[in-house]
Amino acid sequence: MAPGGALVIGDVVGWLTDPAHWQSTPFDTGILGQLGAHVWFCLIALVIALVISLPLGLWIGHTGKATWLVTVANAVRALPTVGVLVLLVVIIAPNFYGRTNAGYLIPTEIVLVLLAVPPILSNAYAGVQNVSPAVRDAAFGMGMTGPQVLLRVELPNALPLIFSGFRSATLQVIATATIASYVTLGGLGRFIYDGLAQQDYPQMISGGLLVAALALAADLLLALAQRYTVSRGITGRAGRQAGSDSRVAVLNEELASETA
C-alpha cells in the first residue's frame, strides 16, 4: 500500500487528470480507447443475452411451460467466472491462429452472456407471472388472442421487472468485462491488471473507478429509458398506489428463485 490515504487520492486524481493517459499512442491505448473497447464487449454480450432470454422468459411466463429453464439459468450464476473463462480459452483459442483475437473474444463474450442471461430471463418470467390473473383474464375475455395478451397486456405490465433484470445484468456485465483484459484483450480492466502487475496503484484504482463510473452512467441511462417506456399507470407515479420499488422486486425475485 502507498503511504497515507490522502497521498493515494491525490495520485489517483493526478493519474486520471493527466491528458496523456486519455489519448492513445502507437504503443499504448488510452482511457478513451479502452473505454470504447469495454463498452463494445458489454454491448455485444447484452444484446445477445437480451435476444436469447427476453423472448424466452416472456414465453415461459406466458405459457407456464419449461419453467425448469429458469431454475437452470439461475444455477448458472453459481459458476466461477474466471474458471469458465480460462477453460473456454483453452478449448477455443487454439482454433484461431494469430492475427485475429477471436480466440479470446469469443470465450469472453460467452462468459458475459452466461452472466447476463439469468437475471433477464428470470425477471422476464417473473414479470409475466406476476401480472394479476384478473388482468390476464380480462384480456382474454375481451377477445385477445394469446400473442395479443402477451404483447399488449403481459409485456407492458412486466416491464418494470424486465428493466430491473436488465439493469442488474448490465451492472454485472460491465463489472465483469474487466476479465477480458485477463486474457490479453483490452477494456478498462487493462488498467487494473497492468496497475496490479506494475504495482502502479493509482492506475489500478483509476481503472476501478472508471468501471464504476461507466456502470453508474449506464444505469442512469437505463433508468431514464425505463421512465419513458413504463406506463405511468403501473409505476405509481400517476397514482396514489405506489408501485413497489423495482430493485426490491429483483431482490425478492432472486430470493424467491433461490428458495424455489
Binding site: 384478473a134 380480462a138 375481451m142 377477445g143 388472442t145 397486456v153 407492458p156 399507470g233
Partner: peptide, 22 residues
C-alpha cells in the same frame, strides 16, 4: 373463441381493468 368474445361485451367481476392503459 377470440372472435366470439369480441362480439360479446363482458363486464368482469371487480372490473378487471388494464392497469397500464389510460
Amino acid at each position: 373463441a377470440h372472435e366470439l368474445r369480441r362480439q360479446i361485451g363482458y363486464v368482469i367481476q371487480h372490473a378487471g381493468l388494464f392497469p397500464h392503459r389510460t
